[in-house]
C-alpha cells in the first residue's frame, strides 16, 4: 500500500513538474522546490506540489529590496558594528568605506550565487586588515551582524505575509550562511598564510652561520629550540663548515634558557657530526639549567669542548687556529 501511495505521489510530482516547466520555462528547478509547507497549503498530506516561485526569483526580489534600501541598511549596519565595539582598530570613515564595499559584494554574491568574487574580496580585505590587528571574531561578527540586519529588514517588509516571509527566508538563509562561511574561511586562510610566512621568515633568520675569521665560524643561537629548529640548525652548520672550510666552530647558546633532553642530545650529535667533517666545536654560554640537563642525560663532556662565554670561546678558537691577537702597542 505504501509503495502504491509513493508511486502515485511520484507520478503526481512528475506531472506537476512537467506542468510547471511548461508554465515557466527557463526556470531552475531544484529539490528545494518541494516542501511540506507547500503540500499543506496546496494539497493533501503526502502529495508534494511545486512551489509557485523558484528560489532564484525570490532571491532576485530580495536583492532588489536590498539595493533599494542600501543606504539605510548600510548605516544601520555600521551603527551596529560601532555599538558592539567591533573593528576598534579602524576609524569610523574606514569602517564606513569597508562596510559599503562589503555590503555591495554581499548583495552581489546573493544575486549571482557566484562566490569566487566574494572569496577574492574577502582575501583582499583580510590582507589589508590583518596587519592592523583585526581578530577573527570581529570579521565573523560583522558578517553575522550584516546577516542579522538584513534579516530584520526582511521581517519588517514581509511581516504581513507570513508565508512569503518564510519562503524569502528559505531562499535567503542558505545563501547568507554560505557567504558568512566564505568570508570567515577566507579570513582564516589568509591569517594562516601570514603565520606560515612569518614562521618561515623566523626560521631563516634564526640560524645564521657567521664567519668571524678564516676557518672560524660562530653560530649564535637565540630563543627556544624545538626539534625541528635543531635539525635545521645542524644542517646549516654542517653545510656552512663545508662551504667555508671551517676548522673551528663556536656555538653560542647564551640566548637559550632551557633545552629538553631530545634537543640536548641533538646538540651533542651536532658536535660529533662536525668532528666527522674535521671541525672542532666549542660550545659557549651554557646556562645552569642546560648544564644540569647535560649532566642528567650523561653527556660525555670529553667530547664537548665548553667555554664560559663567547669571548672565551673565540679566544680558544683562535689559539686552536694558531692566531694570536696583540695590541698595536705591543707590536712596536
Amino acid at each position: 500500500m505504501v509503495l502504491v501511495a509513493n508511486l502515485q505521489g511520484a507520478q503526481a510530482n512528475r506531472l506537476h513538474k512537467v506542468q510547471a516547466l511548461q508554465r515557466k520555462e527557463n526556470r531552475f528547478m531544484s529539490k528545494r522546490e518541494f516542501t511540506s509547507r507547500d503540500s499543506e497549503a496546496r494539497g493533501g498530506p503526502g502529495v508534494e506540489i511545486v512551489r509557485s516561485e523558484a528560489p532564484s526569483e525570490l532571491l532576485r526580489e530580495l536583492v532588489a529590496h536590498l539595493r533599494q534600501n542600501r543606504t539605510q541598511l548600510r548605516e544601520e549596519w555600521v551603527v551596529r558594528i560601532t555599538e558592539t565595539r567591533l573593528l576598534t582598530a579602524m576609524t569610523k570613515e574606514e569602517i564606513f568605506a569597508e562596510a559599503t564595499s562589503v555590503y555591495d559584494s554581499y548583495v552581489e554574491a546573493l544575486e549571482t550565487e557566484a562566490f569566487e568574487a566574494l572569496q577574492a574580496y574577502a582575501r583582499n580585505l583580510s590582507e589589508r586588515i590583518i596587519p592592523r590587528g583585526v581578530e577573527t571574531h570581529e570579521v565573523v561578527g560583522i558578517v553575522l551582524l550584516l546577516r542579522d540586519v538584513l534579516a530584520r529588514s526582511l521581517f519588517a517588509k514581509y511581516q504581513t505575509d507570513f508565508k512569503k516571509l518564510n519562503r524569502i527566508l528559505d531562499a535567503y538563509e542558505p545563501a547568507a550562511n554560505r557567504i558568512a562561511n566564505t568570508v570567515a574561511v577566507g579570513f582564516v586562510q589568509e591569517r594562516e598564510r601570514v603565520i606560515r610566512q612569518q614562521q618561515e621568515a623566523i626560521r631563516e633568520l634564526s640560524t645564521p652561520v657567521l664567519q668571524v675569521r678564516e676557518r672560524l665560524l660562530i653560530l649564535p643561537i637565540i630563543g627556544v629550540i624545538d626539534p625541528q629548529r635543531a635539525r635545521q640548525l645542524t644542517e646549516q652548520l654542517l653545510r656552512g663548515i663545508r662551504t667555508n672550510r671551517a676548522k673551528v666552530v663556536v656555538i653560542d647558546i647564551t640566548g637559550v634558557a632551557a633545552m629538553d633532553v631530545t634537543v640536548a642530545n641533538h646538540l651533542v650529535q651536532t658536535v660529533e657530526a662536525s668532528r666527522l667533517l674535521g671541525a672542532t666545536v666549542i660550545v659557549t654560554g651554557l646556562s645552569p639549567e642546560i648544564a644540569q640537563t647535560l649532566v642528567t642525560i650523561g653527556v660525555d663532556l670529553g667530547k664537548m669542548n665548553t667555554v664560559g662565554d663567547l669571548q672565551g670561546g673565540i679566544e680558544q678558537a683562535e689559539r686552536l687556529l694558531g692566531y694570536k691577537v696583540v695590541t698595536l702597542a705591543e707590536t712596536r
Binding site: 644542517e235 654542517l238 650529535q269 660529533e272 657530526a273 674535521g278
Partner: peptide, 17 residues
C-alpha cells in the same frame, strides 16, 4: 676525509661516530 654533511649526521644518529 671528505665525509658529506648529510652522511656525517646520519652516522652520528646511528651511533657510528
Amino acid at each position: 676525509v671528505g665525509i658529506q654533511p648529510e652522511v656525517a649526521f646520519a652516522m652520528v644518529q646511528l651511533g657510528l661516530t
